[in-house]
């Protein structure tokens, strides 16, 4: 039987009269790499915020690991095993790289030594071990993205929500991050991946949902999505304008 780790059911998010996300449903299976794509303003990040408890959904349900999580706080959701990164990176600037990752690690232990060991392990995974004692605020953007990744990995998540983790990176950096993500999946984590870069998405995702103007436009395998005329129209701007 197929295990649905995350089930999004008719989720909508309104800000006053603005509909940012409208009646979106999809399910993510365990150990899938699931892509969430769409043009700017499609509602991808808003949907992430609804799932991770930062903005509770106006209507609809978010079910994670058979548990309804709509009304939970972000920290409670993190404790259940769902962790997110931020499109606009949020390093804890005055702490060191190692300390940043330790903050994540403290969600699974209260012992500083264990947190440090966990943090060092994650720095190894993303290749930041040489920067452990540097202040997080001083890192260049590519390394800050890796730090985001290491920090959420330290929370030992079952599911990771990565918000444009490759945004602003060059090809080599993107490839490194994609390799890291494949490695994470191999260890049993499930990943939802927001990305602009179609090439990155189609090369790594098992399944993709396309959002446009807050609505679900299409869902399918990368092959189906890249040949879908609606999707092509939305991306090339030939479709319905708001």
């Amino acid at each position: 039987m197929i295990q649905h780790l995350l089930h999004i059911s008719h989720v909508s998010k309104h800000f006053g009269g603005n509909v940012a996300v409208s009646d979106v449903s999809f399910s993510v299976e365990e150990e899938q790499i699931f892509g969430l794509i769409g043009p700017n303003g499609a509602g991808k990040t808003t949907l992430f915020n609804c799932i991770t408890g930062f903005f509770p959904a106006t209507s609809g349900d978010v079910i994670f690991d058979t548990k309804k999580i709509n009304a939970l706080r972000p920290d409670e959701i993190c404790k259940l095993g769902m962790a997110r990164t931020w499109q606009r990176v949020k390093p804890l600037g005055s702490l060191t790289v190692l300390e940043n990752v330790m903050v994540g690690a403290f969600s699974v232990t209260t012992v500083a030594k264990e947190a440090e060991a966990n943090a060092k392990e994650q720095l190894q995974v993303v290749g930041l071990n040489d920067y452990a004692t540097k202040s997080a605020g001083s890192l260049p953007i590519g390394l800050k993205k890796k730090l985001e990744l290491a920090r959420v990995l330290a929370t030992r998540p079952k599911m990771l929500l990565l918000d444009e983790i490759c945004g602003g990176l060059n090809h080599t950096e993107t490839d490194t991050i994609l390799d890291i993500i494949r490695g994470i999946r191999k260890k049993g984590a499930t990943i939802i991946f927001i990305e602009h870069d179609m090439k990155a998405v189609t090369s790594i995702c098992d399944r993709i949902v396309v959002l446009n103007s807050g609505e679900k436009l299409a869902e399918g395998t990368p092959g189906e999505i890249t040949t879908n005329p609606d999707v092509i129209a939305a991306y090339l701007g030939g479709g319905h304008h708001a």
């Binding site: 930062f54 962790a83 997110r84």
Partner: peptide, 11 residues
Amino acid sequence: EDQDAAASLGI
């Protein structure tokens, strides 16, 4: 340093 980052890390 950052409340949102803190909350997202389980704090």
